[in-house]
Write a protein that binds this DNA or RNA. Sequence first.
DNA 1: CAGCGGACTGACCGATCGGACAGTATTGTC
DNA 2: GACAATACTGTCCGATCGGTCAGTCCGCTG
Lengths: 188, 188
Amino acid sequence: MTVPSSALALQRIALEQFATAGFGGTSLGSIAQAAGLSKSSVLYHYESKEALLAAAVQPAVDALGALVAGYPGDGNPDEHDRFVERFIDYLFAHRLAVHLFMNQGRFLQHIEPVATADALLQRFAEAIADRIPGVEDRIRFGVALAGAAYSLVAAANWSSEELADTDDVRDALLRTVSSLLSSSQPAR
Amino acid sequence: MTVPSSALALQRIALEQFATAGFGGTSLGSIAQAAGLSKSSVLYHYESKEALLAAAVQPAVDALGALVAGYPGDGNPDEHDRFVERFIDYLFAHRLAVHLFMNQGRFLQHIEPVATADALLQRFAEAIADRIPGVEDRIRFGVALAGAAYSLVAAANWSSEELADTDDVRDALLRTVSSLLSSSQPAR
DNA sequence: CAGCGGACTGACCGATCGGACAGTATTGTC
DNA sequence: GACAATACTGTCCGATCGGTCAGTCCGCTG
């Protein structure tokens, strides 16, 4: 391990605060306090607030690259189903980072990993839209991505009941997203 | 008109920045600059940053109250369809405020209209879940609300093509949300 | 023209921000 | 125990934050 566990904990805490309170709304002091460190120590491990964010989202960017690369553009339905499953698992694993990309990506383009993630998401959306171009498919993709990410991150805001990481949630989300990412429903 | 048009423009600009850059990430100075005023002038119209946010989201809170009050808990399918239409129109009209409620609501509970909106959304979610309680329906509601709001607000982040306020978008969103808010699909 | 009230501003305040830096603990190695 | 290297901290800095306040500008009314 070249990265000590304390640095990983710091990244986890930082990502949590950046995703929920916003990059501008999060101070190095509050991150340090949550980690049981001083602000100086945080800046010892990461040379700046931006660098801390970059390190915190880097794993999510790498995994997103792998996910998008494995998208079966014109695969058979089975392949597609398996991809949707990987998609949901990715959201589970990196929900905070995805939430951050979607809600703050535009204002954090100057941070390299964020810009990369945005470009990947854009390529992803275009690949989806290429299958059956049209406004509705684009909308469905956006609703699925944003809705799933939000359900996993911020649902506790207005839903009294916490959505734990149970298989129930995963299954429900899988069916919901799957129906959204399949082609437009024939009936209307 | 008891409210001068300049005040309305100020609310619109402020809401735009609060929703996209976050409350903590938006300064009174940047709002003032976008409005062509000085910071002092902004604080002349609204006694604080919080008061400006409260005034900016108040119309959306009022409309949300009316929307939720009109929810036909056990109405016939036609009634339900008409409600989904009102729901989409509400999202169109108040997308920025909804986006703000969902992504920053938890940290802005001390601002009265935000707390009210959160309570309304919670009541709404519970009413939906009461029809057919279960994890999946809750997920579907969350996905529909967050996904639709996001599609209308921040899609420009990763989708190269801007989603204009066309009837196409409204129709597509209507069908997407309608399929999500109907009861769980029979087949699994 | 006097003057009055609302719109607006620049100067200023204390607090907090991100960050720089010198110095202190702590740890592992011989 | 000597001695680095690493982890960590307190202090300080300039910039910016939200907010106060005294005063200016301007259109309206008498």
